[in-house]
Nucleic acid binder design. Structure first.
Length: 775
DNA sequence: AACGAGAGACAA
DNA sequence: TGTCTCTCGTTC
C-alpha cells in the first residue's frame, strides 16, 4: 500500500524557512488553470515539489494533479487553502521544461493550462484512487458523524460531501489515499507437501503441489491441473486443505508496443541533406526521402547526447516513421493507442535512460525525454495537426513552444514548402528535395458532356482495365451524392437541425446529415411541388463514382475506401487489378504496386476551401498522390472547372520545382500584403446560442469588449454568421482577431469572456478554416 | 470535464 | 407537489 505513513490531520500548516507556509499550484487534466493548496505535510525539507504528482482534496473526494509551481502562500490566504494530501512521486514526473511549455502554450492560445495537459496526453493523472477517512474523537461534532465510528479507517464514500467538507475545515478527519493497481487472482503455494499427502490416492495432489512450487504461481486451478496433468479436483483439494491459496497480485502491464519491424532499411540520406544544428525544414521528395534526409541531423543530435521527439499527424504515419527510423536509430514509439498506464510507465522510465528518438503522435510532445534537443514535426501542413478534441491546439505551433521552453530546435517536414514551413523552420536551414515528377492530364469539365466522369477519365480507365492494372479515383465526399431532392423544382432535402442539405446514401436508401448524424428514410414526394421524381442532385460521392466505373467496366474489381467503408485492399497489394474509389483518406495508403492511374474527380473542391491556405492544400493533395505509386509514374488525371489553377499548372509544369517555388513566393507576398499568417497570428472566436438573435447579440458583445480593451479596427474582423449558420440546432456567429505579434494577441484574448448569458464562446487560436472574413 | 444547485416543464 | 430535464456556475 502506498498510503502515506502519516496522514494529514489538523496540524498547523507546514512552515517555509521564511516562516510562511508553502503553497503549491496544482494543474488537473481539466479545462482549468492552476488551483492552490497548502503543500502536503509529508515532504522532507528541500525537496522540490514542482513537476511531482500530488493527491488533493477535490469536492467530496480526492483526485490527482500536477504541481506547476511552489511558492509562499499569499498573505492572509493560508487559512482558506486546504492541504494537499500526499505526493505520488519521489522525483518530478514532468520536467520544468515541459511545465514551462504547458504554461507558454496555455497563455498563447487561451486554452486553460490543465486542458493543455489533457490535450497533449500527459498520462498518469487519472489513476483509480482508494480513499479512506478516519474521524477524530470529538464529542462536540458527534452529530456530524451520525452513526460512524471514530478512530477507525473507513472508505471515503461513507461520508457525504457536505460532512467531509465541514470535517476537513475543522480538522476533524484524517485522510489516506493509495493508487489502486489492477490486480489478478493467482494460485500460489502455501505449504510444502507433508505426511497428509502421502500415499497412492494423494499422488495427484502431491504432483500438482510440487509443480506449483516449481512454477511459483499458476493463473488458475484449471491451468495448474493442465500443467501438472492431474484432474482439477486434485488442485481444488490442495486449496481446501490450505497447501495452496488464491492471492491478488498486481497485474503486469502489457508491454508498450515498440516501433514496427521492417524488412527493408531506410535509404541513405540523399546528397544535399546535411546536419542542421538549429531550426530547419525538409520539403519535397517522398515521405521516405524526407525521413532519410533527417537522418544526419538526428544522428548528430543523439551523438551530442540529446533526445529528439518526432511528431506525426496521425497514428498510421507515426507508425510508418517509427518503423523506418528504427532501422537506423534507437527509437521509442508512443501514440494515444497505448493505454494511460503504459504511457505513464514510459514517462516514468524515460528520464533515467539515454538519449532517444521518440516517435509518435502529439501525445509524445510533452514526454520527459532526457535532454530534449529537437522536435521534428512530420507533414507539418497536414490538417490533422489541428487538434479537434480538447483544446484546439495546432501541433506545429505547440511543438515550437515546447522546443523553445527546452532550448531545443524545431524541424518541420512537408511535401511542399509553405509560408509556415519557412517561417517556423528558419529560412536558413532548409532542405528542398526534388519534387516528384507527375504525368498530368487536365480534363476540363466546363461544357463537357460527362458528369460526374469526363470521357477522358473513362477512356484511360478502360485502358487500366484492359492492361489489368490499378487505379485510384478520388471523390470529394463519401456517400452517393452531395444532395438529394426534386428533379422537377430543385428542392433539396434539408437537415432539420443544421443549415445543410442531407447526404444521399444510396446503398442504405437513407438520407444522412454528416454534421449532426440525423438519419431519415427517403421522402416519397417533393414537399414543395409534389413531384414524385426524386433523386441524386449534384456532387458525386464515392458510391456514385464507383457505380459509374462499375458500369464502364463490368466485373472489374472495385473497392471503396472512405469513412463509411474501408474495403479489404489486400488483393491490390498482392498485385491484382482493381480500382479504389475513396475520399482523401486514400492519401494515407501505402504505395500500390501496379498503380497506373490516379484521378481527381473534382479538383475545385480543394481550391474552394475559402481559406487562405487553400492553394497550398490543393498542391499538397496533388503531390501526395504521387506517393501512392511505387516506381512507375502513374498518370494523374484531374477533372476541374478551373484548368488554369496555379497549383495545378505548377505540378503539371516541366520544371515543377521552379514553378512551386514561384508559387510559394507569390503566396508569401499575398500573405504579407493582406496580413495573413505567418505574418500575423489569428484567433477565431465562435459564439453560439440557441436562437439566432442571441448569437448575433452575444457576438457583438464580444466585439465591443475587444474594442473597449483597445482593439483596433484591423485587429477585429466580423462578427459574421458562420459559413454553416446553424449546426445541431445552435446558431453560430464568429469573429476573427488578428494580431501582429503574439503578446498583443494574448492581451486581446484576455478581453474575450469565457461565456455570456445564454451563449457559449469558444476561442480557436491558429484556426485552419478561417472563411472569407479577410477578403 | 464533472458535478450539484436552481429554474422551468409536465403530470397528477 | 413531485419528478424530470436543462442551464449555469464551481472546482483551491
Amino acid at each position: 500500500m502506498l498510503t502515506a505513513p502519516d496522514a494529514t490531520g489538523p496540524a498547523s500548516p507546514r512552515l517555509h524557512s521564511t516562516g510562511v507556509p508553502d503553497a503549491i499550484d496544482v494543474l488537473f487534466p481539466l479545462p482549468l488553470g492552476p488551483l492552490s493548496y497548502l503543500a502536503p505535510l509529508q515532504t522532507g525539507e528541500g525537496e522540490t515539489a514542482v513537476g511531482r504528482r500530488v493527491v488533493v482534496p477535490w469536492q467530496s473526494s480526492v483526485r490527482v494533479g500536477l504541481v506547476a509551481a511552489s511558492r509562499a502562500v499569499d498573505a492572509g490566504r493560508g487559512l482558506e487553502l486546504r492541504h494537499a494530501l500526499r505526493y505520488l512521486d519521489e522525483a518530478p514526473f514532468l520536467g520544468r521544461d515541459q511545465l514551462r511549455a504547458v504554461d507558454a502554450v496555455a497563455r498563447a492560445t487561451g486554452v486553460p493550462a490543465g486542458l493543455v495537459l489533457a490535450t497533449l496526453g500527459v498520462p498518469g493523472l487519472t489513476p483509480e484512487l482508494a480513499h479512506e477517512v478516519r474521524l477524530h474523537e470529538a464529542p462536540a461534532a458527534a452529530e456530524l458523524f451520525g452513526e460512524l465510528p471514530t478512530g477507525r479507517w473507513l472508505p471515503g464514500e461513507r461520508l457525504g460531501a457536505k460532512e467531509l467538507d465541514v470535517l476537513r475545515a475543522q480538522g476533524l478527519v484524517d485522510e489516506a489515499v493509495r493508487v489502486v493497481r489492477h490486480t489478478r487472482r493467482v494460485l500460489v503455494p502455501r505449504r510444502r507437501a507433508d505426511a497428509d499427502l502421502d500415499g497412492e490416492r494423494r499422488a495427484n495432489q502431491r504432483r500438482a503441489l510440487e509443480r506449483l512450487h516449481a512454477l511459483g504461481e499458476a493463473d488458475s486451478a484449471a491451468a495448474l491441473a493442465r500443467d501438472a496433468d492431474v484432474p482439477e479436483s486434485a488442485v481444488r483439494a490442495l486449496v481446501e486443505k490450505g497447501y495452496a491459496a488464491y492471492v491478488e497480485v498486481e497485474a503486469p502491464l502489457p508491454p508498450l508496443p515498440g516501433p514496427p519491424l521492417l524488412d527493408d532499411r531506410l535509404e541513405d540520406p540523399p546528397p544535399g541533406a546535411a546536419v542542421t544544428g538549429g531550426d530547419g525544414y525538409v520539403a519535397g521528395g517522398s515521405r521516405r526521402a524526407r525521413l532519410s534526409a533527417l537522418l544526419p541531423t538526428l544522428a548528430s543530435d543523439l551523438a551530442a547526447g540529446r533526445s529528439v521527439v518526432v511528431v506525426a499527424p496521425e497514428n498510421v504515419l507515426a507508425r510508418e516513421a517509427a518503423g523506418l527510423l528504427a532501422t537506423r536509430l534507437p527509437v521509442r514509439y508512443l501514440t494515444g493507442e497505448a493505454t494511460d498506464e503504459q504511457r505513464e510507465a514510459l514517462f516514468a522510465e524515460l528520464p533515467a535512460g539515454g538519449p532517444v528518438v521518440l516517435v509518435g503522435s502529439h501525445v509524445a510532445l510533452l514526454a520527459p525525454v532526457p535532454s530534449l534537443g529537437r522536435i521534428v514535426v512530420l507533414e507539418a501542413g497536414n490538417q490533422t495537426h489541428k487538434l479537434r478534441s480538447g483544446g484546439r491546439l495546432w501541433v506545429p505551433k505547440a511543438a515550437q513552444r515546447v522546443a523553445a521552453a527546452a532550448g531545443a530546435s524545431l524541424t518541420l517536414t512537408d511535401v511542399a514548402p509553405s509560408p509556415e514551413l519557412l517561417a517556423m523552420g528558419g529560412e536558413a536551414g532548409g532542405t528542398l528535395l526534388p519534387l516528384p515528377r507527375l504525368r498530368v492530364h487536365v480534363a476540363d469539365m466546363s461544357g463537357s458532356a460527362g458528369w460526374p466522369l469526363h470521357p477522358d477519365l473513362l477512356l484511360t480507365f478502360r485502358q487500366v482495365v484492359q492492361r489489368e492494372r490499378q487505379a485510384i479515383v478520388l471523390a470529394p465526399r463519401r456517400g452517393f451524392s452531395g444532395a438529394y431532392g426534386c428533379q422537377n423544382c430543385g428542392w433539396q432535402a434539408p437537415c432539420p437541425n443544421c443549415d445543410l442539405t442531407l447526404r444521399f446514401h444510396r446503398d442504405e436508401g437513407r438520407l444522412r446529415c454528416h454534421q449532426c448524424g440525423h438519419d431519415q428514410p427517403l421522402p416519397q414526394a417533393c414537399p414543395q411541388c409534389g413531384h414524385l421524381e426524386l433523386g441524386a442532385l449534384k456532387g458525386a460521392g464515392t458510391q456514385w463514382v464507383l457505380s459509374q466505373l462499375e458500369r464502364a467496366a463490368p466485373g472489374f474489381p472495385g473497392f471503396r475506401f472512405d469513412a463509411d467503408r474501408r474495403d479489404d485492399l489486400s488483393p491490390l497489394y498482392a498485385g491484382e487489378p482493381g480500382v479504389i474509389v475513396g475520399t482523401t483518406a486514400v492519401l494515407r495508403l501505402a504505395p500500390l504496386p501496379e498503380l497506373s492511374l490516379v484521378a481527381v474527380t473534382l479538383f475545385d473542391v480543394h481550391l474552394a476551401l475559402a481559406d487562405f491556405r487553400a492553394e497550398h492544400e490543393a498542391l499538397r493533395m496533388l503531390l501526395q498522390v504521387a506517393e501512392l505509386a511505387t516506381g512507375r509514374r502513374p498518370l494523374l488525371l484531374v477533372q476541374t472547372f478551373a484548368p488554369g489553377a496555379p497549383a495545378l499548372r505548377a505540378v503539371a509544369s516541366a520544371a515543377p520545382d521552379v514553378a512551386v517555388e514561384a508559387l510559394l513566393a507569390a503566396q508569401l507576398e499575398r500573405r504579407r500584403r493582406f496580413g495573413y499568417p505567418p505574418f500575423t497570428t489569428l484567433a477565431k472566436v465562435q459564439v453560439t446560442a440557441r436562437d439566432r438573435s442571441g448569437a448575433h447579440a452575444a457576438a457583438h458583445a464580444v466585439a465591443d469588449r475587444l474594442r473597449v480593451a483597445g482593439a483596433r479596427d484591423d485587429e477585429v474582423l466580423g462578427p459574421e454568421a458562420a459559413p454553416v449558420a446553424r449546426v445541431k440546432g445552435r446558431y453560430t456567429f464568429q469573429l476573427l482577431i488578428r494580431a501582429w505579434d503574439e503578446a498583443r494577441l494574448e492581451g486581446l484574448l484576455a478581453a474575450v469572456p469565457d461565456r455570456l448569458p445564454g451563449a457559449r464562446v469558444a476561442v480557436d487560436v491558429d484556426p485552419v478554416d478561417v472563411g472569407e472574413l479577410l477578403e
